[in-house]
Amino acid sequence: MEMWHSPVGSQKSKEAVLYSMKSKKDVQPGTLALMVLKTLDVLGPLHGYGIARRIEQISGDQLFVNQGTLYPVLLRLEQEGAVESDWGPSQNNRRARFYRLTRAGRKLLETEKRDWELTAAIIARFFEVKAEDLA
Protein backbone atom coordinates (compact mmCIF):
# COMPACT_ATOMS: atom_id res chain seq x y z
CA MET A 1 0.00 0.00 0.00
CA GLU A 2 2.79 2.35 0.89
CA MET A 3 3.85 3.04 -2.64
CA TRP A 4 0.53 4.54 -3.58
CA HIS A 5 1.17 7.31 -1.15
CA SER A 6 3.70 9.32 -3.02
CA PRO A 7 2.31 12.66 -4.07
CA VAL A 8 4.54 15.03 -5.96
CA GLY A 9 6.91 17.03 -3.88
CA SER A 10 6.34 15.09 -0.71
CA GLN A 11 8.41 12.48 0.97
CA LYS A 12 8.53 9.43 -1.25
CA SER A 13 8.39 5.85 -0.22
CA LYS A 14 11.37 3.62 -0.90
CA GLU A 15 9.75 1.93 -3.86
CA ALA A 16 8.76 5.18 -5.48
CA VAL A 17 12.30 6.44 -5.11
CA LEU A 18 13.60 3.26 -6.75
CA TYR A 19 11.21 3.72 -9.61
CA SER A 20 12.03 7.34 -10.17
CA MET A 21 15.77 6.68 -10.08
CA LYS A 22 18.26 9.40 -9.48
CA SER A 23 18.38 10.82 -13.00
CA LYS A 24 14.75 11.94 -12.86
CA LYS A 25 13.65 15.24 -11.38
CA ASP A 26 10.60 15.98 -9.29
CA VAL A 27 8.24 18.52 -10.71
CA GLN A 28 8.32 21.74 -8.77
CA PRO A 29 4.95 22.68 -7.37
CA GLY A 30 3.01 24.98 -9.64
CA THR A 31 5.07 24.24 -12.73
CA LEU A 32 2.92 21.26 -13.65
CA ALA A 33 -0.01 23.59 -14.39
CA LEU A 34 2.22 25.67 -16.66
CA MET A 35 3.35 22.55 -18.53
CA VAL A 36 -0.27 21.45 -18.98
CA LEU A 37 -1.27 24.83 -20.35
CA LYS A 38 1.67 24.96 -22.78
CA THR A 39 1.03 21.39 -23.97
CA LEU A 40 -2.61 22.17 -24.68
CA ASP A 41 -1.58 25.40 -26.38
CA VAL A 42 0.79 23.62 -28.75
CA LEU A 43 -1.07 20.38 -29.38
CA GLY A 44 -4.73 21.38 -29.07
CA PRO A 45 -7.36 19.32 -27.22
CA LEU A 46 -5.92 16.24 -25.44
CA HIS A 47 -7.07 13.71 -22.87
CA GLY A 48 -5.31 13.29 -19.53
CA TYR A 49 -3.08 10.44 -20.69
CA GLY A 50 -2.13 12.36 -23.80
CA ILE A 51 -1.08 15.37 -21.72
CA ALA A 52 0.96 13.17 -19.40
CA ARG A 53 2.74 11.45 -22.30
CA ARG A 54 3.55 14.76 -24.03
CA ILE A 55 4.97 16.21 -20.86
CA GLU A 56 7.10 13.12 -20.46
CA GLN A 57 8.25 13.31 -24.05
CA ILE A 58 8.92 17.04 -24.05
CA SER A 59 10.88 16.88 -20.84
CA GLY A 60 12.92 14.13 -22.45
CA ASP A 61 11.93 11.59 -19.82
CA GLN A 62 13.87 13.58 -17.28
CA LEU A 63 10.87 14.48 -15.19
CA PHE A 64 9.18 12.23 -12.72
CA VAL A 65 5.47 12.81 -12.69
CA ASN A 66 3.18 10.71 -10.63
CA GLN A 67 0.68 10.86 -13.41
CA GLY A 68 -2.39 10.72 -11.19
CA THR A 69 -1.53 14.12 -9.76
CA LEU A 70 -2.30 15.57 -13.16
CA TYR A 71 -6.01 15.25 -12.60
CA PRO A 72 -6.35 17.51 -9.54
CA VAL A 73 -4.32 20.08 -11.47
CA LEU A 74 -6.62 19.76 -14.47
CA LEU A 75 -9.66 20.16 -12.22
CA ARG A 76 -8.19 23.25 -10.69
CA LEU A 77 -7.45 24.81 -14.07
CA GLU A 78 -10.96 24.02 -15.16
CA GLN A 79 -12.42 25.67 -12.07
CA GLU A 80 -10.31 28.69 -12.82
CA GLY A 81 -11.70 28.77 -16.32
CA ALA A 82 -8.32 28.19 -18.01
CA VAL A 83 -9.38 24.94 -19.65
CA GLU A 84 -12.64 23.33 -20.69
CA SER A 85 -13.31 19.62 -20.87
CA ASP A 86 -15.72 17.30 -22.55
CA TRP A 87 -16.11 13.61 -23.18
CA GLY A 88 -14.88 12.34 -26.51
CA PRO A 89 -13.77 9.12 -28.16
CA SER A 90 -10.21 8.01 -27.40
CA GLN A 91 -7.91 6.21 -29.87
CA ASN A 92 -9.50 2.81 -29.26
CA ASN A 93 -13.04 4.22 -29.30
CA ARG A 94 -13.51 4.24 -25.60
CA ARG A 95 -14.65 7.32 -23.75
CA ALA A 96 -12.02 9.84 -22.57
CA ARG A 97 -12.18 13.34 -21.18
CA PHE A 98 -10.64 15.87 -23.56
CA TYR A 99 -9.18 19.13 -22.29
CA ARG A 100 -9.03 22.30 -24.36
CA LEU A 101 -7.39 25.63 -23.64
CA THR A 102 -9.83 28.56 -23.31
CA ARG A 103 -9.11 32.14 -24.18
CA ALA A 104 -8.64 32.91 -20.49
CA GLY A 105 -6.24 29.96 -20.34
CA ARG A 106 -4.21 31.36 -23.20
CA LYS A 107 -3.98 34.69 -21.40
CA LEU A 108 -2.98 32.95 -18.22
CA LEU A 109 -0.30 31.06 -20.08
CA GLU A 110 1.07 34.31 -21.49
CA THR A 111 1.31 35.88 -18.05
CA GLU A 112 2.81 32.79 -16.47
CA LYS A 113 5.30 32.49 -19.30
CA ARG A 114 6.44 36.07 -18.89
CA ASP A 115 6.78 35.63 -15.13
CA TRP A 116 8.71 32.45 -15.62
CA GLU A 117 11.08 33.97 -18.16
CA LEU A 118 11.67 36.92 -15.95
CA THR A 119 12.47 34.69 -12.97
CA ALA A 120 14.70 32.50 -15.13
CA ALA A 121 16.53 35.53 -16.50
CA ILE A 122 17.18 36.89 -13.03
CA ILE A 123 18.40 33.53 -11.75
CA ALA A 124 20.58 33.15 -14.85
CA ARG A 125 22.19 36.48 -14.22
CA PHE A 126 23.05 35.40 -10.69
CA PHE A 127 24.81 32.35 -12.03
CA GLU A 128 26.76 34.28 -14.63
CA VAL A 129 28.02 36.89 -12.31
CA LYS A 130 31.75 36.80 -11.48
CA ALA A 131 33.58 38.42 -8.62
CA GLU A 132 35.33 40.95 -10.86
CA ASP A 133 31.99 42.14 -12.28
CA LEU A 134 31.02 43.39 -8.86
CA ALA A 135 34.31 45.01 -7.97
Binding site: W4, H5, S6, P7, N66, G68, P72
Partner: peptide, 18 residues
Protein backbone atom coordinates in the same frame (compact mmCIF):
# COMPACT_ATOMS: atom_id res chain seq x y z
CA UNK B 1 -0.59 1.48 -12.28
CA UNK B 2 2.77 2.34 -10.78
CA UNK B 3 3.21 5.29 -13.08
CA UNK B 4 -0.29 6.56 -12.35
CA UNK B 5 0.44 6.66 -8.64
CA UNK B 6 -1.77 5.99 -5.63
CA UNK B 7 -5.41 6.11 -6.63
CA UNK B 8 -6.58 6.96 -3.11
CA UNK B 9 -4.11 9.76 -2.72
CA UNK B 10 -5.05 11.19 -6.12
CA UNK B 11 -8.68 10.95 -5.21
CA UNK B 12 -8.05 12.79 -1.96
CA UNK B 13 -6.15 15.54 -3.72
CA UNK B 14 -8.82 15.71 -6.37
CA UNK B 15 -11.51 15.98 -3.78
CA UNK B 16 -9.59 18.65 -1.91
CA UNK B 17 -9.44 20.69 -5.09
CA UNK B 18 -13.10 20.12 -5.66
Amino acid sequence: QLKLGGVESVREQYHAEE
